[in-house]
Structures are given as C-alpha cells and as structure tokens.
Computed example of a mutant assay.
Amino acid sequence: MSHHPPFQQVEASRPDFDADEQWRVTKTVSPDWTPGTGANGRQDLPGVKEGLWDGKKQEAAKFREVDPAKENKGGLYKMMISAVTPRPIGFLSTVDAQGRTNLAPFSYFNIACHDPPIVMVAFTHPNGQELKGTCENILETKEFVANMISEPFVEAANFTSIDAPKGVSEWPLSGLTPVPSKLVKPARVGESAFVMECVLEHHYHLHNDAGVRTGTVVLGRVKLFHVRDDIIDDTLLVDTGKLQPVSRLGGITYGRTTRAYEMPRPVFDKEKEKEEVKAILAKV
C-alpha cells in the first residue's frame, strides 16, 4: 500500500508545463570568482548563509556515514539515483533471438569513449538467475540501438518502462515509430533526433557480497550515428536547445535542460602568471 496520494491528484495541484521556457545561457553562478577562494559563497543559494557549503565550517554541516554493507538495498538504490543526478537516459531498442522486439529506458547510461565511440549501460536484475530482457537480448544478439529521449516524446518513452512480460513488445504500447536501422537488426526510434547503432564490445556481470549476480555492465561500440540535420552544425556540435534532452533524477522524477552557463577550462601556462595564482603556488 502506497503512502503517497495518487499521482494524478498530485499532478493536478502543480502548475502547467511551461513550453515558453526555452534554452538560454546565463552568466556563471559567480563571474568574479578567483582561484584559491573555494566555494563561491553566493548568499542567495539555499544553505549558503547557514554555512552548509563551506567545507571549513564543519560544525554547520552534519554528515551521515552510510555503510552499504549495513543498509537496505532498496534504500541504497533510492539514495544513489537521487544523488547522482542528472543522468542521461539509455532508451534502448533490441530484438531477442527469436526476432521479437523490445524497447525500454535505462538510467544507468552514459558515453564511455569517443575513439572508439563507446556507450555504457548497466542493468540490475530481478534475481540471480534471471537477466533483464534488454540485457539478455544484447548478450544473445550482440546488438542494440541507443535512442536519446527528448521532450516532444517523453511520455511515450516513459511508458515503455512498463513491466511487460518478456516477449511482449513495448513498441505498439508507446506509439513510437520503428525505423529500420542500417547496420543492426533492432529498429531505431523515428522520433529520436540522436540515435546510435551499437554492437556489443564487452560485458561484465556484477555480484553482491553474497556472490549473487545482481547486475551487468554492457559496453557497446557505436557503428553508426543518426543525427537530425537541424540539431547539428558542420563541426558536429549538437544544439542542446534543439535537442531538448531529458534527464533522470530520483524516484519517478525527470529533469528538463533549459538553462546553462559556460566556464572555460583554465590553462596553467596562462593562469600561473596571475598574481593570485603566483601567491598560491608560492605556498605549495
């Protein structure tokens, strides 16, 4: 029995989705920050006045030590997915050995390398004997397609997370469009603006302290990208505002990507000539 009100009741109390809030780039949090000064100390950010973001004020910020060996695994899951955020979503299309299709989102996903182009996805399994359907399909056929999720079809993508039994395809339930891939058997999502056709590069099974197989990490080599013309320029830079990417946060929460700020990487040969940097280096 859930302790939370029905989701439709909760959602009805919230403001409408703001489609007018589009991609914009602002100044950084503290444009006047100087080397060696630590946290920016901006007082209008939550917790700054109270000293919670000042590492020198240990009396202000109390920390809890969480020993994974002593905690409930469900609690660890809740903590990790709500803290390590935002995360890109691996929206994977696969086929099984019988050719049956599967489409599902996974939040343990990211790029791992660009030369060669490698994506990483990790699966947690229902028990020590059974694999998640998508993982099983990848290990059997050695192919998958990673489709990036954008706001114009986020509801359809989320619906593919339904706990359908193996062999039941999520494609028709979502209403999304399967488009034949060029190099692999699984179809790509026609609504996705950025798609990667992948073949299995390597996989590694994970075991808990009791020796039970609980997860699998999969590395896929990208053999072909499909990028919609309007979101990419001649240098291969993708326009975030046009891509409208969606990220995963904790629980059932998704994140929008509508605002950003830019910070150039410091170059040591230039920074070492500044007086404040010279002073710091002299003390090292």
Rank of each mutant, 00 (worst) to 15 (best):
L45H: 11
L45N: 12
P46A: 15
G47T: 11
G47S: 08
G47L: 10
K49C: 06
E50F: 03
W53F: 12
D54L: 09
Q58N: 12
Q58R: 14
A60E: 15
A60N: 14
A61C: 15
K62V: 14
K62G: 01
K62Y: 08
F63T: 13
F63G: 08
F63R: 13
E65C: 05
V66S: 05
D67G: 03
D67C: 07
A69R: 13
A69G: 12
K70V: 06
K73W: 10
K73T: 14
K73I: 13
K73R: 13
G74W: 11
G74Q: 11
G74F: 12
G74I: 01
L76N: 11
L76R: 10
L76D: 11
Y77A: 09
Y77I: 10
M79V: 02
M79F: 00
A83E: 01
V84N: 03
V84I: 13
P86E: 06
R87L: 09
P88D: 04
I89D: 02
G90A: 15
L92V: 15
L92Y: 02
S93W: 03
V95I: 15
V95N: 10
D96V: 10
D96R: 12
A97T: 12
T101Y: 06
N102L: 08
L103F: 07
A104Y: 09
F106V: 02
F106P: 04
S107V: 04
Y108A: 13
Y108G: 08
Y108F: 15
Y108V: 09
Y108S: 13
F109W: 09
I111N: 12
I111S: 14
C113I: 06
C113E: 04
C113L: 04
C113M: 03
P117Y: 00
P117I: 05
M120L: 14
A122D: 06
A122N: 11
A122E: 01
F123E: 06
T124L: 14
T124R: 12
H125R: 01
N127E: 08
N127V: 01
Q129H: 05
L131V: 05
G133A: 13
T134W: 03
C135K: 00
N137D: 11
L139V: 11
E140F: 01
T141L: 04
K142Y: 00
K142D: 02
E143V: 04
F144G: 04
F144T: 10
V145F: 07
A146C: 15
N147F: 02
M148I: 12
E151F: 09
E151K: 13
P152I: 08
P152Q: 02
P152S: 09
F153D: 04
V154Y: 08
V154T: 07
E155K: 00
A156L: 06
A156C: 05
N158A: 12
F159N: 05
T160S: 14
S161P: 07
S161E: 02
I162Q: 14
I162C: 12
D163V: 01
A164D: 06
A164S: 14
P165Y: 00
G167W: 08
G167K: 01
V168Y: 01
S169A: 12
S169I: 10
E170N: 07
W171T: 03
P172Y: 06
L173G: 00
S174W: 00
S174F: 02
S174Y: 02
G175W: 06
G175P: 05
L176V: 07
L176C: 06
